[in-house]
Design a binder for these strands. Structure first.
Length: 481
RNA sequence: GGCGCUAUCGUCUAGGGGACUAGGACGGGGCCCUCUCAAGGCCCAAACACGGGUUCGAAUCCCGUUAGCGCUACCA
């Protein structure tokens, strides 16, 4: 048995949608699992809407996700000649015919049919035209499309995800395969290309199941056996409707910008509509490839749950050593306008990693620790200061005195905690009442790593500086008289 | 309207006639840990759309109903 050949065939009329990305991923996983070939084909036959910029974005998105193609990218526009030749071959063998009906006439008849409550079906009037009439019209230069003559039969296939599907060709009308300008319509172009590229498995979105009977008929008319079809379910928004722009971020680029790891995105997308059949969630690339199968694909649509994506990203983040995070964090810091000094970012990243779900969140926390101008007192912080009242300032003064007594050489997490604990005890303070104000002044927030780690990571000079700044600007508590 | 697809916790899913008191994960709630918040550990709430069959036995098979989605272009 020859190895499978699959393809991903996006049209460059928009960004790389998460739905498209998942379709690409399934194709890629199938190719890698079976040792087959993954072909990338850009379907740019809709010249009105296709742009090079979109093609770029799609290629970049796939690259970012680590989806590599073995052949291509092929551009469908380059095969217009073959498409037309196929259409003419069908015409010559009587399996297709010229249609002289204008778009306006068709629109009118369609509108009328719909107004009457029924669906419109082309009535084959041009098929019934006498040969000399056809010749005459061609002679006069009348524009025409080429329509496929749909034979009267049951069209059935065994879908790799849905099982047997059958449709009677009565439901199809004689669809156009070649426009009056000589360019191919989608269904012809796809079949022509998939035949030429020897595609064995067509893995694509569910929205194509109704095209499948037409395409099967075309395969046969062109003298080829249809490939295996696998229609993967749609991706829905939280409201159960097809995922679209109004649901927020739908382009894979959006998630890259939000600091999602490609590995996490890939893992998440793989599990959206596919299951390895076991209770596994975190699956690295090689496991995904090893476990992937068409049978594991779900037949019902799936809702895209951003929260779970973020959780998964957090899992990947936690598992990534700080060393590997250096580059992305530097990049984010640059974007935030924080000069990542020559300091080793490693300990900072480690201190903050568990509280972040994305690189962007992580970098923001690093930035606050690096640059005191980024410290913003949040509402919880204010609340705490109010609640503690004068004690807030007194705690800070105590902290300042205590910390000043620790030399730069002794400034390490363990020593800091011991000293602070002792100071709290001596002054009859709960540890939290001493530590929490420090946290708030250093970060502006009531949330951070343990305060001793925070102090260690921010450094002696900077920590003391922030405390001093605060005490200087804050009204001194009136001494009890 | 017609045709097609689909139907298990709020969400992603396991399940393919008895192993189901329906399992896991996200999210939610609680406890532990703890200077806060996370992370981590433990626990709890939460589903087989409905109605008929078939069968000794149905989440699993069949048929209807309902609902959702898709397609119904000289778009892809």
């Amino acid at each position: 048995m020859t190895s499978p050949r699959v393809r991903f065939a996006p049209s460059p009329t928009g960004y790389l949608h998460v739905g498209g990305a998942r379709t690409a991923l399934f194709n890629w996983l199938y190719a890698r699992h079976t040792g087959g070939v993954f072909v990338l084909r850009i379907e740019d036959t809709d010249k009105e809407r296709s742009t090079d910029a979109h093609t770029r974005v799609i290629l970049d998105g796939l690259g970012w996700l680590g989806i590599t193609w073995d052949e291509g990218p092929y551009f469908q526009g380059a095969y217009a000649g073959r498409h037309r030749a196929d259409a003419e071959r069908l015409l010559a063998s009587g399996k297709a015919y010229r249609c002289f009906c204008t778009r306006e006439e068709l629109d009118e008849r369609r509108a009328k049919a719909e107004a009457a409550g029924g669906g419109f079906r082309y009535d084959r009037r041009c098929w019934r035209l006498a040969a000399d009439e056809v010749a005459g019209r061609i002679e006069r230069g009348m524009p025409f499309t080429i329509r496929f003559f749909v034979p009267d039969e049951e069209v059935a296939w065994k879908d790799a995800v849905h099982g047997p599907i059958a449709v009677h060709s009565q439901e199809l009308d004689d669809f156009v395969i070649l426009r009056s300008d000589g360019s191919a319509i989608y269904n012809l172009a796809v079949v022509s290309d998939d035949i030429a590229m020897r595609i064995t498995h067509v893995i694509r979105g569910d929205d194509h199941v109704s095209n499948t009977p037409k395409q099967i008929l075309l395969y046969r008319a062109l003298g080829h056996e249809p490939p295996v079809f696998a229609h993967v379910p749609m991706i829905l928004g939280p409201d159960g409707k097809k995922l679209s722009k109004r649901h927020g971020a739908t382009a894979v680029g959006d998630y890259r910008d939000q600091g999602i790891f490609p590995a996490a995105m890939r893992n998440f997308l793989a599990l959206l509509g596919w299951s390895p059949g076991a209770d596994r969630e975190i699956l690295p690339e090689d496991e995904l490839i090893r476990l992937f199968s068409l049978e594991g694909i779900q037949s019902k649509p799936a809702v895209f749950d951003v929260t779970k994506l973020e959780w998964m990203n957090g899992q990947y983040l936690s598992a990534t050593p700080a060393g590997e995070l250096l580059e992305p964090v530097r990049r984010e810091l640059g974007r935030l306008g924080v000069a990542p000094d020559t300091r080793d970012l490693g300990p900072l990243i480690d201190a903050v990693k568990a509280r972040s779900r994305t690189i962007v969140q992580l970098a923001e926390q690093v930035a606050v620790r690096l640059d005191r101008t980024r410290v913003r007192l949040d509402p919880k912080g204010e609340q705490l200061a109010r609640k503690l009242g004068p004690q807030f300032q007194r705690s800070l003064e105590l902290a300042q005195r205590t910390l000043e007594g620790i030399s730069a050489g002794d400034w390490a997490a363990e020593r800091l905690l011991e000293t602070l604990k002792a100071a709290a005890e001596q002054n009859g303070l709960k540890l939290g009442d001493l530590l929490q104000p420090i946290r708030v002044v250093l970060t502006g927030s009531t949330v951070s790593e343990p305060v001793n780690d925070l102090l260690a990571v921010v450094g002696r000079e900077e920590s003391l500086g922030r405390l001093a700044d605060h005490l200087r600007s804050a009204p001194r508590p009136t001494p009890a008289s």
